[in-house]
């Protein structure tokens, strides 16, 4: 396209598009650019001597922060691979033409639709109480009950399980991608004598590379921001072993009233997420570009 020549229908001014997207332009500055700049200013220049380094020293001195980052990374590292694996496997299972398959697609999708609802998180809380459903179930198969909320690892695991249960939204994206893979590829593979396993690794996986990457990024970003589930299920406990960075930001702001710390941590979290996404992007770049 040549510079300054806009391919619009005859009689359409080049400003028409701008007018149409003007709500977004205003919104982007109000709700993306402004908060971004503002949190930097509040977070890093409002310390006593107005210096960025002082803000960093402050954060380094905050023992809760290191722990919260550790919890958040551990949580994301546990949840994201499991969620991707489960949703891919179930999507493969659902990608067949069978009577009543639509019903199962809907059923598997329901938890992720309702899952973020507070009512469901409260329900989850009851499932894992000392004499809750899960412990009863363990009892029937002869295992001793677990004190889910008493132990740091198991309480983090409850949150992981809740989010894992809601694999539907990731699954739907995989399902859509699976349906887009041309059938001819499989037919050709069959003619060449490929078995199911072989065609999965040689056709399905390579065709899904980009979607796997998108899901990986989306789920990582969501996991690293987790707030609702730990806030309701464990309130960060025991001994702040489930206090995510998202919760810490909330606590700094509304419990300890430290606005500049809250904003500085927000920014740090953003940088952390950006760094993790960047590393993932670089690590997978080769794999994503191969062949195709």
């Amino acid at each position: 396209m040549k510079k300054n020549s806009y391919r619009n229908p005859v009689g359409v001014r080049k400003t028409t598009g701008l007018v149409l997207i003007s709500p977004f332009i205003v919104g982007a500055f109000l709700f993306i650019v402004y908060p971004f700049v503002s949190s930097f200013i509040t977070g890093f220049t409002s310390s006593p001597d107005h210096s960025v380094s002082a803000a960093f020293r402050n954060m380094l001195g905050n023992d809760d922060l290191g722990k919260a980052i550790g919890v958040t990374m551990k949580y994301a590292a546990l949840l994201v691979p499991m969620k991707l694996l489960v949703s891919l496997l179930v999507a493969l299972l659902l990608n067949v033409e069978l009577k009543g398959i639509g019903f199962f697609r809907t059923v598997f999708y329901i938890p992720s639709i309702l899952g973020a609802n507070l009512a469901v998180i409260i329900m989850w809380k009851y499932l894992f109480t000392a004499d809750g459903l899960v412990n009863q179930l363990l009892g029937t198969i002869g295992l001793s009950p677990v004190s889910w909320y008493g132990d740091p690892d198991s309480s983090l695991f409850i949150i992981v399980l809740l989010r894992l249960w809601e694999f539907g939204s990731t699954m739907v994206i995989f399902l859509a991608a699976l349906r887009d893979i041309p059938k001819e590829l499989y037919d050709a593979a069959k003619v060449d004598g490929c078995g199911n396993t072989r065609s999965f690794f040689s056709i399905t996986l390579p065709q899904l590379k980009n979607v796997i990457f998108i899901n990986l990024i989306l789920q990582t970003i969501a996991a690293m921001q987790e707030f609702n589930a730990p806030y309701i299920l464990t309130n960060g406990g025991p001994l702040s072993s489930t206090r995510t960075v998202g919760m810490l930001i909330y606590d700094e702001m509304f419990r300890y009233g430290d606005e500049s710390m809250a904003n500085a941590i927000s920014w740090l979290l953003f940088m952390l997420i950006a760094a993790v996404v960047y590393v993932m992007y670089k690590l997978t770049a080769k794999m994503r570009e191969e062949q195709r």
Binding site: F36, I221, V245, I249, M253, A262, S266, F270
Partner: peptide
Amino acid sequence: FMPSIVTVMPL
């Protein structure tokens, strides 16, 4: 892709 938690406090 912007984490909403970053914008919550300034907003």
